[in-house]
């Protein structure tokens, strides 16, 4: 999975959770919560959607890694690619 594909995947989830948010200008290195109206309940839903759609587990201690899009890519890519080679 390319970095762009991972980014798109995460944005798709965010779009589902917060359909009224404009995602066209999201900066990859800025905290998502500083650019979008997302709170901790929404973040929990992002984690649960990752499990539901992609069978990816994110332990509570790792939630911090997902705070920016770049962080999501860094953290999630190995998990996606790990799946592919399993």
């Amino acid at each position: 999975m390319t970095d762009n594909e991972v980014r798109k995947l995460v944005l798709d989830i965010i779009h589902d959770i917060a359909p009224d948010e404009d995602l066209s200008d999201v900066k990859a290195d800025v905290r998502l919560r500083d650019q979008l109206d997302l709170d901790s309940m929404d973040f929990l839903d992002i984690v649960m959607e990752l499990r539901k759609r992609h069978q990816i587990e994110v332990p509570e201690d790792d939630y911090m890694e997902l705070s920016t899009l770049d962080g999501c890519v860094t953290y999630l890519s190995p998990k996606f690619n790990g799946k592919a080679t399993a």
């Binding site: 959770i17 917060a18 359909p19 109206d37 709170d39 309940m41 929404d42 839903d45």
Partner: peptide
């Protein structure tokens, strides 16, 4: 509406309702 999260926003989001 833009501002602190209010109940109906919470409901729409959590239940994925438009």
């Amino acid at each position: 509406y833009r501002g602190p999260r209010v109940p109906l926003q919470r409901i729409y989001r959590q239940l994925r309702i438009k």
